[in-house]
Computed example of a mutant assay.
Amino acid sequence: MTAASRPTVVLTGATGVIGTSLLTSLTAHYEVTALVHRRRPEGATTCLKADLTSHRLGLTASQYREFAAGIDAVVHCAGLTDFAPPDLASFDQVNAEGTRRILELAEAAHVPVILLSSAAAAFDIPGEDLVARSLRAYSHSKRRAEELATRTSQPVAVVRAALLFAARDAVTAPRQQFPHALLTALLQDRPGGLPVHPEHWADILPMESLVDYLTALTAAMLRGDRAAPGLHWTTAGPARLTAADLERACLDHLREAGRPPKGRLLADPATARGRSHGMARIAQLGLLPPEEPALPTDLLRYLPAQPSRADVLDALAHTVRRCAPWAPCPERRGPSG
């Protein structure tokens, strides 16, 4: 550990959807150095401009050595999450090769790593259309990042996160994220509805649960908890929601906003026409059939309670209010950090 009064934690992706909330939580306990690419986050102790896809993060040899000598842990949250980037190879370049650079930094510094992965790493996405190939490239890049983590000499905790609701302090929802894009599409109340089976489900976790878990896990890694390295699932588990739950929350909000819906927001995929691409396709691939078991969850390893269905429904209602298509839309972003 460094001689500073508080440990120094490096955070990547500090300007992203997760990193913004996590930065606030980590700075309450640690000195936080945010690795930044373009934008500088508010609240970090220090910021260092770096390129996750470059050798030594784009730093000189002396800068790299000095930087590595002054850190105690790395929390790697940066990643590419676009639905359809211009080049699908970008997923591997950012999510896998970027992880390789972070693991090299951890080895140089002899410090542990908390690697934010995705539950998508556990799935293979069928189909050859652009949406399917994009989602598959994303899941493969996350899986490869996890594989790289198994080969490093330093302790690594890999966190497979579920989808996420907007943070409580978010003014608007980040509509480039799947749950928020889906809710925005439902709130548009288009004729015919979105062709998704109402009983299909998605695991969506309140942002605060993930942030609390990552913060507790960082503390465990720093104190050398021997049970902390390895795989961690951070999901809603048995509190997963169905497409019908999402529709119901959107219908309630439309009525509250004085925009009574024209009809159902979901449509029977077997009879719906002309909606086999775009958000309809993303929803069809992103929502799982009812026979699929709930995702595993490890939240109780470091949190006092697993979110209940009531907690998740409350987070859903909060997020729906921020997904209304008539609300201001934040600037679209690519890689976080």
Score class of each variant (00 low, 15 high):
residue 218 T to Q: 06
residue 212 D to S: 15
residue 240 R to A: 02
residue 222 L to K: 13
residue 253 H to K: 07
residue 221 M to T: 13
residue 225 D to K: 10
residue 215 T to M: 05
residue 229 P to Y: 09
residue 229 P to L: 12
residue 238 P to T: 08
residue 239 A to S: 08
residue 239 A to E: 00
residue 252 D to L: 09
residue 226 R to L: 15
residue 241 L to V: 00
residue 224 G to I: 06
residue 251 L to M: 12
residue 251 L to I: 08
residue 248 R to W: 04
residue 259 R to M: 13
residue 257 A to E: 09
residue 229 P to C: 13
residue 228 A to G: 07
residue 222 L to Y: 12
residue 217 L to K: 04
residue 231 L to G: 06
residue 233 W to T: 02
residue 258 G to A: 10
residue 245 D to W: 01
residue 221 M to K: 11
residue 212 D to R: 14
residue 256 E to P: 04
residue 230 G to Q: 11
residue 230 G to P: 04
residue 261 P to G: 04
residue 268 D to N: 10
residue 263 G to R: 12
residue 245 D to T: 02
residue 256 E to A: 14
residue 253 H to Q: 12
residue 253 H to T: 06
residue 222 L to N: 13
residue 264 R to W: 13
residue 244 A to M: 03
residue 227 A to W: 11
residue 223 R to N: 12
residue 229 P to W: 09
residue 250 C to N: 01
residue 245 D to F: 00
residue 213 Y to G: 02
residue 217 L to E: 03
residue 221 M to C: 15
residue 246 L to Q: 02
residue 273 R to Q: 15
residue 235 T to A: 07
residue 246 L to R: 01
residue 240 R to T: 01
residue 256 E to M: 13
residue 267 A to Y: 03
residue 253 H to A: 07
residue 238 P to G: 09
residue 261 P to Q: 06
residue 248 R to V: 02
residue 256 E to I: 11
residue 265 L to P: 03
residue 264 R to A: 15
residue 267 A to F: 04
residue 235 T to R: 03
residue 225 D to E: 14
residue 235 T to V: 10
residue 271 T to I: 09
residue 262 K to W: 14
residue 240 R to V: 00
residue 260 P to S: 08
residue 232 H to A: 05
residue 244 A to Q: 05
residue 260 P to K: 09
residue 239 A to M: 01
residue 246 L to F: 11
residue 214 L to N: 01
residue 246 L to N: 01
residue 233 W to F: 12
residue 223 R to I: 14
residue 255 R to I: 13
residue 252 D to P: 02
residue 224 G to H: 09
residue 263 G to T: 11
